[in-house]
């Protein structure tokens, strides 16, 4: 395993009380694998990514669990060691590319700097490699783009540059947090193709965080579905999306308008996500679940394997009986 998150719990201390953002989250990513973390707002998918990157806000506290990267617990490492791991071996691509780019430095120079630092090549060589890196992310005219400033580029172009930057080290793991959400669908499509290709060619593992089940279906080998700070279902993408076992996953798929009959109402999920400051004792989804019974409200289900590699946190079996 390249990355292994075990029973990670994170709390935020804020003015409105303590928010339990993550509760016993476990997740693993193998070498060369693309793993999707999918969930709606407040599901904890981004907090999970930020925990791995060590970018949690100051008011966040990790209350339990560990994050093992290549066998070492990142949470136990010193500041310098942590930075060494994160800077060199883990790359990141966020939703807004401008946050990752230096606004007043030419794109090529930014890339060359990173390449120089990580590969120890000469300045000239680094600049040549920078142009090459831009070509790798399918930028049409890399020499020209290398001379431009970030603000001169379109959103899709910028995101390509950020990917090139993230891949420059080159990392073993790429964490992408809603990296395509701000982009147009046709450009998103190109970026997804690019990520898949880079992963296949270089063996880079990718954790792709998204709210879009369609992206998961097309890009990811495995997926973890998160709800209210917990992983409720995880398995191969085909298993989870074709035969979803958790009522939340099922409901989420039904709520999509993609294949719905326009003459029928969509099967919406009633209610809203529970307040994370007052986490229910039982299953977090119980209040919105059509199959919930008394036991669901009393005890919290743990992830259990339904078939090899496919784990579900639900008291009910697939048919609604006891699991």
């Amino acid at each position: 395993m390249l990355l292994e998150i075990k029973d990670l719990s994170v709390e935020f201390h804020g003015m409105r009380g303590t928010m339990k953002a993550l509760h016993n989250v476990s997740l693993s990513v193998d070498k060369g694998e693309i793993v999707g973390i999918v969930g709606e707002s407040g599901s904890g998918k981004s907090v999970t990514a930020l925990s791995v990157l060590g970018l949690l806000d100051k008011n966040a506290v990790v209350t339990s669990g560990e994050i093992r990267y290549a066998g070492r617990n990142l949470l136990a490492l010193g500041k310098k060691e942590k930075q060494a791991v994160r800077g060199k071996q883990i790359g990141m691509v966020f939703q807004e590319p401008m946050t990752a780019l230096h606004p007043t430095m030419r794109v090529g120079k930014q890339l060359a700097q990173v390449i120089k630092r990580h590969r120890g090549v000469s300045g000239q060589e680094a600049e040549r490699l920078a142009v090459h890196a831009l070509r790798e992310v399918h930028i049409h005219d890399p020499e020209l783009v290398a001379r431009k400033y970030p603000f001169e580029l379109s959103g899709g172009m910028r995101q390509r540059v950020v990917i090139a930057l993230a891949m420059a080290a080159p990392p073993e793991l790429l964490i992408a947090d809603e990296s395509t959400t701000a982009l147009d669908v046709t450009i998103q499509h190109e970026i997804l193709k690019l990520m898949k290709e880079l992963s296949e060619r270089r063996g880079t593992s990718i954790v792709f965080i998204t709210h879009d089940l369609g992206i998961v279906a097309q890009l990811c080998d495995r997926v973890a579905v998160m709800y209210a700070g917990e992983v409720v279902e995880t398995g191969s993408t085909a298993d989870v999306l074709r035969s979803p076992q958790h009522p939340y996953t099922q409901a989420l798929l039904h709520a999509l308008p993609d294949l719905a009959d326009p003459d029928e109402p969509l099967l919406a999920i009633g209610g809203e996500v529970p307040d994370l400051r007052r986490r229910p004792a039982g299953c977090s989804f119980a209040s919105r679940c059509s199959r919930a019974t008394e036991e669901c409200r009393l005890g919290k289900p743990r992830l259990e394997e339904r078939k090899p590699g496919h784990e579900v946190a639900c008291w009910k079996g697939a048919d609604g009986s006891h699991g």
Binding site: H140, G214, A217, D258
Partner: peptide, 23 residues
């Protein structure tokens, strides 16, 4: 057609080919 095929579908197991032509 490009717009339709670019929308990631839950029922599509891989990123489909196609899209814009090179400018």
């Amino acid at each position: 057609r490009i717009l339709l095929s670019s929308l990631p579908s839950v029922y599509e197991p891989s990123v489909p080919a196609g899209g814009f032509a090179e400018p």
